[in-house]
Design a protein around this nucleic acid. Structure first.
Length: 367
DNA sequence: TCTGGGGTCCTAGGACCC
DNA sequence: TCTGGGGTCCTAGGACCC
């Protein structure tokens, strides 16, 4: 059995727990500070009741409810809370998987009373963090995750042989993880509407363990696969100096995070968005792995040159580092040793006075 | 004057090696 | 006058998730 824990309106609930004035109010957490130029990252249940949901543009949300409370996302706060919850769950001494910032899974091999365990976990989470979670229990992660959504917020749902058919009959296919957009549309086009329809068509889909978790329970200790930063410009940008400045800034931001986690990266991926063309980009893997923003930027700019854009009209820019390994960038040349000292000094300054206190001069073009 | 940002996994095709 | 088979790594792009 898998017990899937899904936090309720996680970011919004944390903000409400910290600031009681926001309790029970319609509240959205925006993905960036400009409250009219962002999208909804999380909506409190009072906001959801008005029809506001994550992914909606903030403009639309405010048009539904002009008195909506707005808080810009504070990722560090949510990551910290998520880690605390992870530590709490670890104390149960069961195989534990960190599925996402607000989702966790426990594997219960022959646990005598999963429902009671779920209750206990919910109580502990509430007692410690003043936020609620919904729990789903089933024979594999796909069903457990589905179950956790069925009684939100603050619910517990168990799917077993006694209610399997009934629940699958009542649940439309798009509720199932992986059935977003196009894939779901394909199934619907072939005449399948509910999860039960899919079960009759492909019983193995629910019976086998199509399981990430089931196959590698140690996931939480693995390295991340990639680290990225991206930015959507307020308007289309045609000045290549400004575009380069953004590539530099994003490279520095990625590099800082690599160093914080003692990671080095061999692959740099640059992607761009041109509203007319859509997303495009390229990646390049090198022999040497690095975590220096300047070097990452150089590699990204080389990709930019190779793309040979005639008249760039750029709306969004992203820099991703992948092929990650644990390690510290070890310079060999004396010039590199100088740079390493410089980077360490910059990190110390930014740690002490706040992120962005000191940055390469070219990045002033991003302001 | 529209609508973010950070991730994962999968796949097909190409380059290259033996 | 012609040309196998197997494998790995890399790349571009698509799709999905929170």
């Amino acid at each position: 059995m898998i017990l899937h824990i899904d936090m309720d309106a996680f970011f919004a609930s944390i903000e409400q727990a910290i600031n009681p004035r926001l309790k029970d109010k319609p509240l959205i957490v925006g993905s960036r500070g400009n409250k009219m130029h962002t999208v909804v990252c999380a909506a409190s249940y009072a906001a959801k009741a008005l029809g506001i949901y994550s992914g909606m543009s903030s403009q639309e949300a405010f048009s539904i409810c002009p008195k909506l409370e707005f808080v810009p996302a504070d990722q560090a706060k949510y990551i910290w809370t998520s880690e605390q919850i992870f530590q709490l769950l670890k104390s149960y001494d069961l195989p534990l998987n960190y599925a996402s910032i607000d989702e966790f899974q426990l594997e219960l091999a022959g646990h005598p009373d999963p429902l009671n365990l779920a209750k206990k976990i919910k109580e502990q989470v509430y007692a410690n963090f003043n936020i609620t979670a919904s729990v789903g229990i089933a024979k594999n992660w796909l069903l457990a995750k589905l179950a956790s959504k069925l009684n939100k917020p603050d619910g517990i749902t168990l799917i077993d042989d006694s209610n399997f058919e009934q629940i699958l009959r009542q649940t439309s296919l798009d509720k199932l993880c992986g059935m977003g957009g196009k894939i779901g549309a394909n199934f619907i086009a072939s005449g399948l509407k509910t999860c039960w329809d899919l079960y009759l068509d492909l019983p193995g889909f629910f019976n086998d363990n199509p399981g990430k978790f089931d196959e590698n329970p140690g996931k939480s200790n693995e390295l991340p696969k990639s680290i990225s930063h991206s930015y959507t410009l307020p308007t289309v940008q045609i000045n290549s100096q400004v575009i380069q400045a953004w590539i530099r800034l994003l490279s520095e931001m990625v590099a800082t995070r690599l160093r914080q986690q003692n990671l080095i990266s061999a692959t740099v991926h640059l992607w761009l968005n041109d509203p007319q063309i859509g997303n495009f980009g390229a990646q390049k893997t090198h022999q040497s792995a690095i975590n220096d923003g300047y070097e990452i930027c150089q590699r990204a700019l080389k990709i930019m040159t190779k793309l040979a854009l005639k008249n760039p009209r750029i709306r969004a820019i992203g820099v991703t580092c992948s092929s990650l390994s644990r390690g510290i960038y070890s310079p060999l040349l004396s010039e590199d040793i100088r740079r390493e000292e410089l980077i360490k000094a910059l990190d110390r300054i930014n740690n002490r006075f706040g992120e962005g206190s000191i940055y390469p001069a070219i990045t002033v073009l991003t302001r």
